[in-house]
Amino acid sequence: MPSRSSAAAASLIVVALSIAGCSFSIPVEAESSSTPAAPSSAPTPSAPTPSASDDADGDDPMADALAERDQFLADQQLPLDGSPLVAVTPAQQEFIAQQRAFIESQGGTWDAQTESISLALAADACETAILNYHEVDASLLQAHVASSPVFAQLIPADFSADQRLAAERNVASVMVFGAGFLCPEDGPQWEAAFTEVYG
């Protein structure tokens, strides 16, 4: 794990990178003089990709996907008003328990903001999978990372290309790990896409 100076410990990027170790990550040293703004708690999906079979039988696949997304949000009991996310379902609680245990085993301190960010990343991945008809691949992962406001707010704009890639990989590992709990049917596809993109 990276060493933790008092300035770095206050930075969200260090928190985000430090929580990235449960399944996939290799933690990296990331120092930044700026602290990114707190991300919005409400997940924001990537734009869905219509398929060739859309509306072939008079059905509206996007309407179905939107209804499924709304049901997912209701089932997850996620607030949509920008308030912090807190683990409330058994799956969320298990995800957060494992993340917290990892951070604390590395000498880190868990806080409400880290919990909210972790849940936002995972829920965002699940919502994106739903709105893309559960067709998750490397291209979708790359588009999601590039367009996600949560990633944008966690990773400082002044990072070098190598720092950015390492930070994206570590934040994405938290997202993919969490998706395995919140939307386990999409978890294997997210894992495969992660492995293809980040190795």
Results as ranks from 00 to 15, higher is better:
I26W: 11
L154P: 06
E104V: 13
L17P: 01
T109G: 09
A20L: 10
D81H: 13
A192K: 11
Q93H: 05
A157K: 10
H144M: 05
L66R: 13
G107Y: 02
M175H: 05
E31Y: 01
T109V: 15
H144S: 15
E185D: 14
S46A: 15
I13G: 01
A87M: 02
G21V: 11
A143W: 05
V176I: 12
V174D: 00
I155Q: 08
T128H: 07
D54G: 04
I13P: 01
N132K: 08
D124I: 01
G187N: 01
A146T: 08
A166Q: 14
Q163N: 12
A166P: 10
I130A: 01
V88M: 14
P79L: 02
T195L: 12
A7Q: 13
S11L: 00
A123E: 13
V197M: 07
L141G: 02
A129S: 15
S51M: 11
S139V: 13
I19C: 14
P50W: 10
G108K: 05
L141N: 03
P79N: 11
A125L: 03
A52R: 06
A112F: 02
P149W: 06
D57I: 08
A146F: 02
V150F: 03
P84K: 06
V14K: 07
A157D: 12
P27T: 12
M62D: 12
E94T: 15
G178C: 07
L141V: 08
A91R: 13
Q99R: 12
T49P: 03
G21D: 09
A38Y: 07
E168W: 02
L140R: 08
D75C: 07
D60P: 05
W190C: 09
A120W: 00
M62Q: 12
A74G: 13
Q189G: 11
V171A: 04
P188V: 06
L141M: 10
L80F: 03
A125F: 03
H144I: 00
F95W: 10
F159D: 03
S148C: 04
A112Q: 09
L78W: 07
P2Q: 10
T44A: 14
E94A: 15
V136R: 00
G180N: 15
P61L: 00
S118P: 09
T44D: 08
S33C: 01
L12M: 15
D158V: 08
T195M: 11
S51Y: 00
S147F: 00
F159W: 11
S160R: 03
S25P: 15
S139P: 03
I117E: 03
A143I: 02
P48V: 06
Q142V: 10
S6N: 12
N170W: 05
A120D: 14
S173N: 09
G180H: 10
A120S: 13
V174H: 04
T128V: 08
M175Y: 03
P39C: 05
A74N: 12
Q77G: 09
S147N: 12
